[in-house]
């Protein structure tokens, strides 16, 4: 089972996980990591490292982060030295749900492209859709 870490500024990740669970039910092996203004990069590194260890059962881990170029992104990016870890920026709810539903389909690197696509495809201009 592919492990999932959601690392965000503030409590966005915690709430995203709660919301995902409202829609698809209890999610195993998912950890939300929050990052507060007073915390150091080292503290965030340790929290993400611990979360990866907690959710990795051998199939790898996908780390979702909120903002491209933000600190959660930069710090998660350093974990790419581990070939079993993947990082996706711009986390949204459809990406999380898609991964939870496909987390037994292989290793993290096998599903990452589809998860990215699911995230992008989920963003539409509704007015254009109903024309």
């Amino acid at each position: 089972m592919i492990g999932i870490v959601i690392a965000t500024h503030g409590c966005m990740g915690i709430e995203l996980l709660k919301t995902a669970e409202l829609i698809i039910g209890k999610c195993e092996n998912v950890e939300a990591v929050s990052f507060s203004p007073h915390e150091s990069g080292e503290e965030l590194t340790q929290k993400i490292k611990q979360a990866i260890a907690d959710v990795n059962d051998g199939d790898g881990v996908v780390i979702f982060v909120d903002l491209i170029g933000g600190n959660c992104c930069t710090i998660s990016g350093a974990f790419l030295l581990d070939e079993t870890v993947e990082v996706l920026t711009g986390v949204n709810l459809p990406m999380i749900i898609k991964l939870v539903n496909h987390r037994d389909d292989g290793k993290a690197k096998d599903v990452i492209a589809d998860i990215q696509k699911a995230g992008v495809k989920s963003i539409v201009n509704l007015r254009e859709m109903i024309k």
């Binding site: 500024h9 150091s40 990069g41 903002l67 170029g69 933000g70 600190n71 930069t74």
Partner: peptide
Amino acid sequence: DERFIHGQILQG
């Protein structure tokens, strides 16, 4: 800024 280039710099 001990985070150097990050969200606040990029967006704020």
